[in-house]
Write a protein that binds this DNA or RNA. Structure first.
Length: 385
RNA sequence: AAUAGCGAGUCAUAGCGA
């Protein structure tokens, strides 16, 4: 059964879902009863697609086939709910798991804690942390990490530092990721000195700043309008022998775009491949937004076509940039056309998209249409901010 | 009973704003 499970996992990870299903029934035909392990990769596939219903269906299969889901199975279903930003639903599944007598572990607790952190509900997050301690589970660097990151994202650096000290007292080592999260926290608050201090501290501890560390700092420097220092930081990253990745280049491109230097942005864009870094959807979106901001809509649209041709799917970011670009360049009809085209592309306009469109309509004195859209977004369950 | 197989944390892109 182990061997079959390993194969089933490999099949599914290649994206061959139907074949995985067939494989599982074939293994049953040969007299090997699949267990939770055999099915979990299938479950993970649904989860990563954000398909809660699909994941739930696998659970229905479990009860039909008499398979007992293990912690990992539950973790995957819980993750699907986390992905939807529904920590309470996730928690319900978790409680259900406990009732069924499946023992929780550090991983599932960490995942659940992260779900609450992402919604900014640190109170629940810490409650779960205490609960796992009561159960005799030992938080590891992942667990402390989600707590620290949650606090950093809320800008609560003092509290984050306390958890940082706490984990050390408990004998859990600080790793690069932990430092990176704190550095990002300081950068986002504009406290670059704090960020640099931590970078030095991590080096002193024998840790090596990685591409995450550098990119975090570079982004921080860009936001602090210190573009020259940002460039120097990029160079010193290269000096350490680190290979810049797609995110690093996208950051640089964005920096150029924000400064209106599309020529430089384009140069970096065409050179990045030489470093083995291929542009991705975010890279395209960044450039498209840059051209939109400059009013070079032909270029922007050209890039949208190019990204599509390369197999990337224009997303809500792409459309919002273009809608805003057309709106503010006197082409409100083009903007509206794009907006109306979104549903057909499987895209759901969000708050930002609606604001951009409404703003554009108002600028063009099409107030009635703007109000109609405002009503529409409320009907769709969006909450104007 | 032991052992092996699955799951969790950090960086980049969009609108408005006295």
């Amino acid at each position: 059964v182990h061997s079959f499970s390993i194969l089933s996992d490999a099949l599914c990870k290649e994206g061959k879902v139907e074949e995985t299903r067939r494989f599982l029934s074939e293994m049953r035909g040969r007299g090997f009863e699949p267990d939770a392990y055999s099915y979990n990769s299938l479950l993970e596939w649904h989860t990563n697609k954000g398909d809660v219903n699909g994941a739930s269906r696998v659970f229905e299969d479990f009860s039909r086939e008499g398979i007992i889901p293990n912690v990992t199975s539950y973790t995957l279903l819980i993750k699907a709910f986390c992905h939807l930003g529904k920590p309470d639903e996730a928690d319900k599944v978790f409680r259900d798991m406990l009732e069924k007598g499946v023992a929780p572990d550090v991983v599932v607790y960490t995942l659940l804690i992260r779900a609450y952190c992402r919604t900014g509900d640190m109170k629940q997050a810490f409650k779960l942390h205490d609960e796992m301690l009561l159960k005799g589970l030992v938080p590891n660097s992942f667990t402390y990490g989600v707590l620290i990151d949650g606090l950093c994202k809320l800008g609560q650096m003092e509290a984050a530092k306390m958890v940082f000290g706490d984990m050390q007292n408990k004998g859990v080592d600080h790793d690069e990721v932990i430092y990176n999260m704190l550095i990002d926290g300081y950068c986002k608050k504009g406290m670059m000195d704090g960020a640099f201090q931590l970078q030095q501290a991590m080096i002193k501890r024998g840790l090596v700043p990685d591409v995450f560390t550098y990119n975090t700092i570079i982004t921080g420097l860009c936001r602090a309008e210190k573009k020259d220092e940002a460039k120097l930081m990029f160079d010193s990253m290269l000096d350490t022998g680190l290979l810049p990745n797609t995110v690093n280049f996208t950051t640089l491109i964005d920096m150029c775009c924000k400064g209106g230097d599309m020529e430089e942005a384009g140069k970096i864009f065409s050179n990045m491949l030489q470093y083995g870094a291929a542009p991705n959807d975010v890279t395209y979106n960044t450039l498209i937004n840059g051209y939109c901001k400059k009013g070079q809509m032909e270029e922007a649209v050209k890039l949208k076509d190019e990204m599509t041709a390369k197999g990337f799917v224009p997303d809500v970011f792409t459309y919002t940039s273009l809608i805003h670009g057309f709106s503010t360049n006197g082409k409100i009809d083009e903007a509206r056309e794009l907006f109306d085209d979104m549903p057909a592309r499987g895209l759901v306009p969000n708050n930002v998209t609606y604001t951009a469109m409404i703003f554009g309509l108002c600028m063009h004195n099409r107030v009635q249409e703007a109000f109609n859209l405002y009503d529409e977004m409320i009907i769709r369950g969006l909450v104007p901010d």
